[in-house]
Amino acid sequence: MISIRSADSRGKADFGWLQSRHSFSFASYYDPAHMGFSDLRVINDDRVLPRAGFDTHGHRDMEIISYVLQGAIRHRDSTGTEEVLRAGEFQLMSAGRGIMHSEYNASDSEELRFLQIWIEPAERGGAPGYQQKDFGLAPGLTLVASPDGADGSLKMRQDARLYQLILAPGESLDFSQQPERCSYVHVVKGQLQLDDSQIGPGDAARVTAQPAYTLRNVGSEPLQALLFDLA
């Protein structure tokens, strides 16, 4: 079964310096029908003004993935990590038993846009950790995060896998999943046909009780999406 979540139906937040769209309930946005999906808890599409950002704050027991779509993030955390995360790069911060961090737009003139993704870990506690990598734009599916760090992917503390999907116009790809697993597909840009459903930027699809489905680029530009394989 495929269930569509349109971009326009997402929660909204406007703080002036931050414009955000929430795929799942977050902060002051509450929707009992969208509390998460399997172990996927948050996808926030954040736009941050130049020199603005999130002051130092804490997290625990969460796998936090950031994916920069435009601009750059200046990251600092309580483990001593200081990094700049640029467009196209993925970051995975394992909060573990507790971590403090800040995130700022690293530019004085360019807007920052990134996806903030939270995945609940399989176990609580443990040492916090930080990983960062640019996976490029290889066609097809690229494994970005996995429980065992397979194929050079970021290693996360959950039985889940995050893929980057890139398809040229007219290209298609078949994806198979075990009967007990499910998928969540979030479109970053382009037009995606998922079996009989067509979705665009910011739209998403939940796929349950379906062993296989076809992903096809039906637009005139390259398609970019994130595919979550979840337990």
Rank of each mutant, 00 (worst) to 15 (best):
G170C: 09
D8F: 13
S220V: 14
E89A: 11
L85W: 02
Q131A: 00
I166Q: 06
F114Q: 04
L115T: 09
T79P: 02
D39G: 13
D39I: 13
S78E: 02
H75F: 05
L40H: 08
G125Q: 00
H22S: 09
F15V: 11
L141V: 12
F175I: 14
I117M: 08
A13P: 05
L227P: 04
S102F: 07
R76I: 03
D31F: 08
Q198K: 14
I4E: 04
A212V: 03
D196H: 10
K155F: 05
E221A: 14
L154D: 08
A95C: 08
S102N: 07
M1Q: 14
R113G: 00
A127L: 11
D31K: 04
L194V: 06
I64G: 01
V84A: 01
R161C: 14
Y30N: 13
H34T: 12
A138R: 11
P211W: 06
P222D: 12
T81K: 15
Q70I: 09
F114A: 00
M35P: 03
L143D: 10
L227H: 04
A145M: 02
P201N: 08
A13H: 02
D229T: 08
G11M: 02
M35C: 12
D55K: 13
I2L: 04
M100W: 10
E120W: 10
S153A: 05
S153Y: 07
D46M: 09
V187R: 02
H57R: 05
F135H: 03
H186C: 01
T214Y: 06
L162T: 03
S183G: 08
S6V: 00
V218K: 01
H34R: 14
L137M: 14
E111G: 03
F26C: 01
M1E: 14
A150S: 13
H59F: 05
D46E: 15
G58D: 11
R60H: 14
G80I: 15
Y30W: 07
